[in-house]
Write a protein that binds this DNA or RNA. Structure first.
Lengths: 187, 187, 187, 187
DNA sequence: AATGAATGAGGGTTCATTCAT
DNA sequence: GATGAATGAACCCTCATTCAT
């Protein structure tokens, strides 16, 4: 087919091609997320994709966790460098912006029971809880909500907003405004 | 068998049996939502179920819209009978409570592109927009958000909270508290 | 395709067609024992065969146990009606004759870990042990071999002879002669 | 890498590595007998294994015949050096002991239609026929069975006993006792 | 009109073999 | 010459839909 396709040392590149294809398809709710479709998109054979990752779930695990890892890292950085009250708002905005670029990934962040994704999901939850807790101690967030509950609330609603299709700037802004005001300690 | 029974009545009864079975299965994430399972649950043949509705999507359209219709009606009633500021809060609570009883229905409210469901989705959006608009005129909701945008925001986040699994009373309460406070005009 | 193929009441007949096809293929080591081949031979679709039995293993379980059941029953009858010394010889001859008609079934009698086949395998072993034990008490079989061991010995070698391809009358006769003489108490 | 090493020697060593790996896997019913597994065990690439032999069947042909050849040779030696009546008994014991060490090899001795294995299978049959014939002339084996038929009988049953799983010393002993007594001329 | 049975289409996966490095 | 990677073919299985009863 594509006579220029290289092999050997570029196995890593093919791996990435498959990941990119999976990511692309995760963003196209129209086309079914089948191994065949992923492989076609990557310019590979279906068996190659399966073999490279060891199964469809493992491929999705890799794709989703590759996307999620920098998000978790960013949360950690914000937690370390920024004032608690601001960190939460900043991160929320960035989280939505991130998911805006990787549409239906969110569907798989929840629900995919594979090691890498599950671990990152846990990490993200922990970092966000810490964010909330500090913000509460700082007086920036109301204390009548348990940090774990607040984290669930924030994560789920942010996901929903990010998943909106079409997603408008207005919607995201409104969400951030409402959520952050709603989280403030009542007057 | 029951040669004296009027056929028309049987057909209607079967239709309802299938709808009830589909509704029941929509609430049981454990069992796959296949035509066969729906038919077995309804005590009917698989062919009958398909034939009665003309396809699985049509059946789901009927089931989902049957569930959604009273919700829309309730919204209309609240709009007519209750003070704008209260209506929104009341309805939001009821909407989540409803979805809590019909777990995965929400997944199909979005995403199912069939006439009845799409129409009700539109109806619901319009009623909620009207709710928001009136609440804004009443000074109960901040006016810096477009009613259509606010409706999208409310609908999507409510859906996400309702879909949470496990769903805790704490989460729902926190959501209502935060969202309603966040929607109030800023001090 | 075959316009004369009947349906409804003959579902049982189709079941039998599939079983017969499986049995036939079990006897043709040349053609692979795939669901597709079984279905083609039976004049059915592959999905039908799978659906009817619930999986390939279940089909083989049914085929093998259907063939094995009368053999076990015959052993029970002989045990009840015939003198111990004769019963063993008679049964052995019939066992081989049976397997001669159902060639490679034997491969699956061993090795197929499915309920019906496993149960019959156990039943057959028990009946044969009882046969050997009685023949030993009767002085017709040497007593320096444990009945369970003798049963294993007889079963496995009979299987092997039955599996022979081509199988000659001479071979079977020689086997019976040698085995029965070998089992007699030493002079 | 090892630029000084003569290629021919490497090739021969790889050939033996692959054969050893195949032999090892033939004895481990747990792990599937795939080219990949053989190659991994040999510390070689899958392509190398295939390329060295020209296909999986050719590899198995080589492995099986390598295992079978000494057995045939041993039969020839016994034929030349030992009294006919004893030779048969001795060889039978050794044959089973051999197969006991190379479990599933037996499955491939039969059924593998490749030149080397087929040839050795024929050789073995001929040597055993000669053994039987001489034993018959010596009065050690009954003469009412054709030597070719007796050979088939012995070979097949011995295989079956060797294949038994679990294989017990009791079973093997019982088999040898029964078969050898059964082969003696009737009193 | 109702339905159990049949099935074509499609899904994920495995494996012997081929190819480009 | 050796090999990791790639792949076409084949396997078993599921399911919405159609068909004959």
């Amino acid at each position: 087919m594509s006579s220029g396709t290289p092999r050997r040392a570029d196995a890593l590149r093919n791996r990435q091609l498959a990941l990119d294809a999976a990511t692309a398809l995760l963003a196209e709710p129209g086309t079914p997320l089948t191994v065949e479709n992923i492989a076609r998109r990557a310019g590979l054979g279906a068996a190659t994709v399966v073999r490279t990752f060891g199964g469809k779930d493992a491929l999705l695990d890799a794709a989703v966790s590759d996307l999620l890892a920098p998000v978790v890292q960013r949360a950690r950085d914000l937690l370390a460098e920024t004032a608690p009250g601001q960190a939460l708002g900043l991160f929320l905005g960035e989280l939505i912006a991130f998911q805006a670029t990787h549409h239906s990934v969110s569907d798989h962040v929840e629900g995919l029971n594979m090691p890498a994704t599950a671990a990152l999901r846990g990490d993200l939850a922990r970092v966000m809880e810490e964010m909330v807790e500090r913000a509460q101690r700082d007086g920036a967030v109301r204390t009548d909500i348990d940090p774990a509950v607040a984290t669930g609330l924030i994560g789920r609603t942010a996901l929903a907003i990010a998943r909106a299709q079409p997603r408008s700037r207005q919607l995201v802004d409104a969400y951030l405004t409402v959520l952050l005001q709603g989280l403030r300690p009542p007057a």
